[in-house]
């Protein structure tokens, strides 16, 4: 884990880094960051607790504890990664550990939007390609250069056409993935919508 965490800002068009492979389907956000670490009012210290229980169980053999992975930044996972709880603490813990992008077979919806909202692009690849990357990572270092414009991931030996939702790809390239300012630009439309909604008028007992 990096000692100094600098959150990403602005346009994200290239991510270069070493892959770290984590095997398993349906890895839920309770496993990424167990609930006891949610007792906090900021995200600062979450990086060290990422996968805490899984890592303890594997006594140093968890991918996040292997010496060879200590500088890795591209996480490679299987299907339905990040299912369960909506806790943004999960991607916040991953990004603080050093993860800058995730490639997987598939992602849970809320986890995916949380990743986008904090600047972690999530890409998908078919099961076969994921397995190819994971097997490669077992034996040697895999450095990938990801280009968001072309959605290509390149390395010395392997090349992949990554999939990413078009809306997310555009947001990263334009730097608008931090949605607040984009949403605020429509403040007149928001007011108009508020005044049009039927239930605003009859909810006089609303708090």
């Amino acid at each position: 884990m990096k000692s100094e965490f600098t959150p990403p800002i602005g346009k994200i068009s290239n991510i270069n880094g070493q892959c770290i492979s984590l095997l398993g389907n349906d890895i839920d956000t309770d496993r990424i960051i167990p609930a006891r670490f949610l007792k906090c009012v900021n995200f600062d210290s979450l990086g060290e607790s990422v996968f805490e229980d899984d890592r303890k169980t594997l006594k140093g053999k968890h991918p996040f504890d292997l010496e060879k992975n200590k500088n890795a930044s591209i996480l490679v996972v299987n299907s339905n990664f990040g299912c369960g709880s909506s806790r943004e603490h999960a991607p916040q813990a991953l990004i603080r550990w050093g993860i800058k992008a995730i490639i997987g077979e598939s992602f849970a919806d809320i986890f995916y939007s949380n990743c986008i909202a904090i600047g972690i692009p999530c890409f998908t690849l078919p099961k076969k390609s994921i397995e190819e990357i994971q097997n490669y990572c077992d034996n040697q270092f895999l450095f990938l250069e990801i280009n968001l414009k072309s959605s290509l991931a390149k390395s010395k030996d392997l090349n992949f056409n990554l999939e990413i939702k078009e809306s997310s790809r555009k947001m990263f390239l334009s730097g608008e993935w931090d949605a607040t300012s984009t949403l605020l630009e429509n403040k007149n439309l928001i007011e108009k919508k508020f005044n049009q909604l039927p239930y605003i008028k009859f909810n006089t007992n609303f708090l």
């Binding site: 909506s86 809320i110 939007s113 949380n114 809306s167 949605a179 605020l184």
Partner: peptide, 21 residues
Amino acid sequence: AFGIGTSQVRDVLATQTIAIN
């Protein structure tokens, strides 16, 4: 009705809207 993460909680507080597919 749907669950959101903390960044989207921020967006709802600030704008009463969220960006969603």
